[in-house]
Amino acid sequence: MPHTVKRVIEGGMYILPSLLLFSIFVFYPMIRTLYLSMHMTDFQGNPTTYVGFEHFVYLFEDRNFKESMKATFLFVIYTVPPTVIISLCLALLANEKLRGIQLFRTFFSSTLGMSVAASSVIWMFMYNPAVGVINKILIALGGEERQWLLNPDTALAAVAAATVWMNIGFAFLILLGGLQNIDSTLYESAEIIGMSRLYQLWRITLPLLSPTLFFVITVSLIHAFQTFGQIDILTKGGPMNTTTVLVYSIYREAFVNYNFGFASAQAIVLFFIVLIVTIVQFTFAERKVHYQ
């Protein structure tokens, strides 16, 4: 018996440093958020009166919250699949052993080196209705001038397109790393038995890449739910709240309107959404993942 106690203490000592850090930076803020979500706060964010679940009840009646839920899910759909598919294609191309391929690998991963703020400003100029390059090209091709970021029909898609571009670098790099880890002798054997390239892709590359793909999809999803910078710079949540994703709505409630309680309630909702999506992913998608 004393032996077990000793082992538990010993084990506890090993995890103590990380437990301490997690408590300060993750667990305490989470509990505090939950606490705040049941209170009204003053302008400094100090809780004043207990209101129970009133914030949550109002959230589900609030039209603006519905709009921002819709924007969030659309944004995820607009960004995650394109990011993964495009970067997978680029990674497959860049995995070929050709002369000068290093140059392309650098190009394709270069958006990783751009900050969100800097790239957003570049995209803002490209989308500008009067002087932006996108409208210039469109008009040269005989199209009509469009206000990409001011039209509720195109604003979210426009921000999503910019986001896909920003995220490709990271996803590409990880996927390329995954491809290079695949044992080349497998391809050699496949060549010998006369397997077509497409069949190789389906039977060898994708299964062996699946852990990496799974990782990229999970991370992209969480990223997409947490998008903030490009929204703040490109649209400020407008027009008509079509680009007010949850994180932006939380920011606005807390730091513009000083409704920390209401913002905390939204943060809790976001936490559960991300939690559920991640659990779903792990239970269903992970079955298809092949670990070597």
Binding site: P239, M240, N257
Partner: peptide, 20 residues
């Protein structure tokens, strides 16, 4: 009023909805 920032956001949204 102390809630001017919110009030302005709502007005902006309303102005934007006129264009739709």
């Amino acid at each position: 009023i102390s809630i001017f920032p919110q009030a302005r956001q709502k007005i902006v949204s309303a102005m934007e909805s006129l264009y739709q």
